[in-house]
Structure formats: C-alpha cells, structure tokens
Design a protein around this nucleic acid. Structure first.
Length: 377
RNA sequence: GCUGGAAUCGUCUAGUGGCAAUGACAAGAGACUGUAAAUCUCUCGGCUUCGGCCUUCGUAGGUUCGAGUCCUACUUCCAGCA
C-alpha cells in the first residue's frame, strides 16, 4: 500500500507526503507532464533545478515508442531518463478519447498508431503490464473518458471504467506479486473517477471506487473548470481520506490549482504550462502575457520581476521576444523553464499557505490580481 | 553598342483580355487544461453609412466595352554577342 501521511487538514484540503520508492512528494504538488519520457524542451536537470518533485509520463506514447521493453531494459523510467524522483504514468485512457478512429469494445480499445498507422488493441490488462514494465511509481487505471451532454452516455462510460478498473486491479495484483518476487520495487495503482459533469454519477463513481483495493485516485474527465469545485467536493468527501488524489490534466489556469487543492486534491499535472511556453504565452502574476507581441521589443525587464527561475534571473523580455521572433529553440526552453517553475512554485506556495493557515488570504490575493483583466496581460 | 529576357502588395512569387490580383515568407493579433501541438486560427492597399467607393502590377502614351495581361516609347536590371 502506498504510504501517504497527512500532516494537516483544512476542510477538504490537506497537506501531506506521498512516500514512493523514488522519494517523497510533498503535497499539494504540481507534477510535470513528461508524456514521452521528457518534459518537452527541458532536461530533467532543469526540472530538478526549478523544484519539480515528480513527473507523469504516458503509457500510450511510450508503448508506441520506444516500447515498454526498452524502458525496462534501460532500468525503468527513472533510470532510463535519469530522473531519480517519483514518477507517474497515465494509462493511455485519455488517448481513447482524443484519438480519431478508436474502436471501443468491452475488451478494450483498438487504436491506430499516430506514428505509422499500425493497429493495436489496448486493454486494461495490457495497460497494467505496460505500466509495470515502464516502471513508474504510480500507475493510472485504464479508464474510458467521454464527453457528452447525455447522462446515459456518461453513465455507460463510467460503468465501463468501473468494470475495467476491476480488471486493472486483478492484473495489477498479479503483476505486483511477480515483480516483488524478483526483488523489484513496489509500484502503485490509482483508480480514475469518472462521471463527467453529472454530480450523481461522480458520487456513484467515487462510492464504487472507494471500496476498491487501490492506492489512490485520479480524478479524470474534467473539461470545464466551472463547477469543478462542486464536483470535487462531492468526490473527495466520499473517497477514503488516507489515500492520495491526483487531479488529471488540470493546471493551465491558476484558479484550477487553488480550487483543486482547496477541495482535497493532492497532486496535479498539466501540459498547459509547457505547451503555452512553447507558443509564447508566459505566466505572470497579472495574467498571461504573449512574449511575441511587438510591445516587448524594447522591454528589458524580466518576465516576472523578482521571479527566482533561471529565465527571469538572467534574461529580459526583449531577449525572449527576439528569440521567439527568430524562432530559436532557446526561447522555448527559457519560456518552458519559467512557466513550469511558475506552476510548481505556485502549488508549493499553496501548500505553504495551508501549513501557515493563510490559504484563503493567499488565494484571494493571488486570484484577484491574476484575473483582474481576465487572466491576460 | 547590338540581340534577347525581365520589372506585380515589406521580400520572393502566381497570373497571358473581366483582377484589389495567387501562394509562401515576413508583419500584427488570438487560441491552447490526463500533448498526433516548436501547433492551430484570424488579419494583412486605403476608405466605408458594409451596399460599395477610391488607388494599385517600373514610367508615359495607345488599342479595347474592359489592360497586370496586347502595342509603342522610355527607364532600370539580367544574359549572350561585341
């Protein structure tokens, strides 16, 4: 069982420590998105320096390339990437939802590789086997996420997620036995709560999964932040308190991190910060700025005055603007360092505010300033 | 000097009688939430009461209902020959 110590509670929110074979994660924490075993544009050395505690890779992508066998041959995800801290893998469930030409059956999902068009069938069992082989500390159950206005559609997807979860648990326990017998380190399984925007389904999903023998929970299928607080309140009131919860895919908007932590989420991951960075959108305390805008041509101040990141300590807006205009990769690297630092640091500060009993003040102060112009500079 | 060829929106480029004119780049702006994303979208001669109006394809004339497109001269550039 994954060890999770809760140090402090405030309503549904909590401050804790997740203990993994690759070290501890102080929660709440932002987990970097390392989909293809790299945080795009960044080295793991840079991730360490900016304060990242953990990263999340994707089973679907690593299954296709380089293949989970090769990662195992390389000593597992941590050894292979030289990221010696905790790792998560997503199950590939998200790809069922987002890729075209996916055929769903009770058995699993038939994908076409986006690389060469070849067909393969991903099942709950195969996802578990692949994740064990990749060797991240924390795995996500293979779920089916859906997006529909119809209660029936969402209910069917949720029920299938539950049936698949039962298969995931069986396979996980089987693999756990095999791996532990070989003296390999423990790996852990999170169930994924579904139900979309329907609170009754979320409640049903949380109740079902609360009884399952899993180490923690992913909360999936969140598309609109409106109503997320209400949904999380429902779900996190039901889920066993002593197990950690990961809010899947949220964190592009600072408000999501506050709302998530406030309602009992312990970790977050999101591709937003690095994707936005590569496209020139940078976080500041006054909202997002687009570094490509002409107005930054002669602006020799840092992106964020006083920011401790490598980018802000050493380089100006004018320099980054120039790098983006001439399309130099260093611009994307520096922008990614800044954005990733910004969210990692933001969640660290959320954790500190919970420890210091000033979460609400920090939240109000931060969000008022950030969204005073709709979140844009 | 002679003989060919070429001049189009910041740049390159399409166009050979109905054209405010093709495409790319550049420029300006926007989007991005478990990453098929170093991607995608929009604008890009001027004015507009959104129906149009005006000014544009080296310069000046001409032919034609109509010319970026055909003709003449000139200017500049390129190639070959002297």
């Amino acid at each position: 069982m994954l060890k999770f110590d809760i140090k402090k509670r405030e309503g549904l929110a909590r401050v804790g420590v997740i203990h993994t074979p690759h070290g501890d994660i102080k929660t709440p924490a932002f987990v970097g998105a390392a989909t293809r075993a790299t945080v795009k544009a960044l080295t793991f050395e840079q991730m360490r320096k900016l304060g990242s505690q953990a990263v999340l890779a994707n089973t679907y992508h690593l299954f296709l390339a380089p293949g989970s066998e090769l990662i195992r041959e390389g000593g597992g995800l941590a050894e292979f990437t030289n990221w010696d801290k905790p790792t998560f893998t997503d199950s590939g469930g998200f790809q069922i939802f987002s890729l075209p030409q996916v055929k769903l059956t009770e058995d699993g999902a038939t994908f076409r590789s986006h690389i060469d068009g070849s067909k393969f069938l991903m099942t709950p069992e195969l996802s578990m086997q692949t994740q064990w082989e990749i060797g991240a500390d924390i795995h996500m159950a293979f779920d089916q996420l859906a997006k529909s206005e119809k209660h029936d559609d969402m209910e069917r997807a949720m029920e299938r997620t539950h049936r698949w979860l039962e298969r995931c648990v069986v396979e996980h326990e089987k693999l756990e036995k095999e791996y532990l017998e070989k003296g390999l380190p423990e790996q852990y399984l999170y169930a994924v709560v579904q139900g979309g925007d329907f609170l009754d389904l979320r409640e049903q999903s949380a109740k079902f999964e609360a009884k399952m023998s899993v180490d923690g929970y992913g909360i999936g299928g969140v598309f609109v932040a409106d109503g997320m607080g209400e949904m999380l309140k429902t779900v996190c009131s039901i889920l066993p308190e002593e197990r950690p919860r990961h809010l899947l895919g949220m964190g592009q908007e600072p408000i999501d991190l506050f709302v998530g932590a406030e309602h009992g989420c312990d970790t977050f991951d999101c591709v937003g910060p690095t994707r936005l960075a590569r496209n020139g959108a940078l976080f500041t305390f006054d909202g997002r700025m687009n570094i490509k805008n002409a107005k930054y041509t002669h602006d020799f101040s840092p992106i964020v005055d006083g920011c401790e990141c490598e980018c802000c300590r050493n380089y100006s807006r004018a320099y980054l603007h120039h790098l983006f205009k001439v399309d130099e990769i260093t611009g994307k690297v520096l922008a990614s360092i800044h954005n990733e630092y910004f969210v990692v640091n933001l969640v660290d500060r959320i954790r500190e505010s919970l420890e210091n009993d000033n979460f609400q003040e920090f939240k109000n102060e931060f969000l008022t300033r950030y969204y005073k112009n709709g979140g844009r500079v």
